[in-house]
Amino acid sequence: MVRSPFRSNGEPWDPSHRFVTSWLLRPAVLAFLRGLFGIYILVTLIVVIIYDCRNLDLGGCAAAGDTFSYFTVLTYWGLAFYFIVAAIHTATYARTGSALLDRFPRFLQQAHGLFYSTITVYPFIVTAVYWGKLYAGPWFPLRFDAWRNVSQHAMNSGFALFEIVFARTAPQPWVHVAGLIVLLALYLGLAYITRATKGFYVYSFLDPAQKGGSGMIAAYVFGIAVGCLVVFAIVQGLIWVRRWATETKGGMTGKFARADRLAVDIEMVRPNKS
């Protein structure tokens, strides 16, 4: 039996539909943009796979398969699926006044909240690590490589920033930090499984043969974990500032679907409860 989407005290999980509305954009527009971003990211990933498969000099499809061991690629897939799923939820809300997400079991609703946290935190870590640690220049001689890297290592943070700025989401529970760290730990395990099964390190700083050995690896891993916490805190702050500026000061409580009246009533009576 599907569990009720309502809390034990009778309140819905997301009473004013913050995950599917914007303070500026109408739900239909928000759904369109989310879908557009999701399609762009998905097409980028597919085009890159096809390109790598055809490039036999660099390993062909075997090399393309190896990319699934990279945190950059996995988080980019995460962005694709998030925007496509979020677009579907937002479109159903725009059409009926009730998002598909509202009818999900509670654990899936909570998973969607954690999903939101991953796509608003991990992209910034990817961008910072790539341009700050891994990229050494010169600029890419091939336009395709430039487009691929800008899409995956720069535009990814732009997509994350869009969700932080334009969605009506509230600051997420701090317990999400634990989930983010656990996912990073699981990825670390994947990286060393890749080393054991395919014979290469996805990132050079995970190689114990590098200068500093295991101690340096521990420092990098700890640094990324701390960075994750810092980025999450910054994102929380940005969301708080956005709500303060748009809702408390600007009076822009949100653009709701015509069929939805519950969200408007709750927002007017209890603006800080969701």
Rank of each mutant, 00 (worst) to 15 (best):
Q236R: 01
S98N: 12
G35I: 05
G189Y: 09
G179T: 04
S4M: 03
S151V: 05
F140W: 07
F124L: 02
L206H: 05
V264K: 11
R143F: 15
D57C: 05
T169A: 11
R7K: 14
S274L: 12
S117Q: 01
K249P: 05
L186W: 05
A218H: 07
T21P: 07
K255T: 10
T21K: 03
L25S: 05
T72P: 02
G199P: 00
V126Y: 00
I41N: 02
M216C: 05
K133W: 10
R26P: 08
V202Y: 00
V264L: 12
L36W: 14
L206G: 04
Y130S: 00
V48L: 13
A209V: 09
P27Y: 13
T44D: 14
Q236T: 02
G38T: 05
L36H: 14
K255D: 13
F115N: 02
A62E: 14
G254R: 00
T67K: 09
Y201V: 04
F159T: 01
A63T: 11
V202C: 04
K211Y: 15
R270E: 14
Y70K: 05
L101T: 02
G97I: 11
P15K: 15
T96H: 09
I164F: 04
F6D: 11
N156P: 01
R168P: 00
A263W: 03
S274E: 13
A146G: 06
F81N: 03
V269F: 13
R54N: 15
F162S: 02
A225M: 11
M155I: 06
L134W: 08
L262F: 15
I50Y: 10
T118P: 00
F107A: 12
R143L: 14
G10L: 07
L74W: 03
F222E: 06
I125A: 01
Y192V: 06
I88M: 10
L186S: 06
S214F: 14
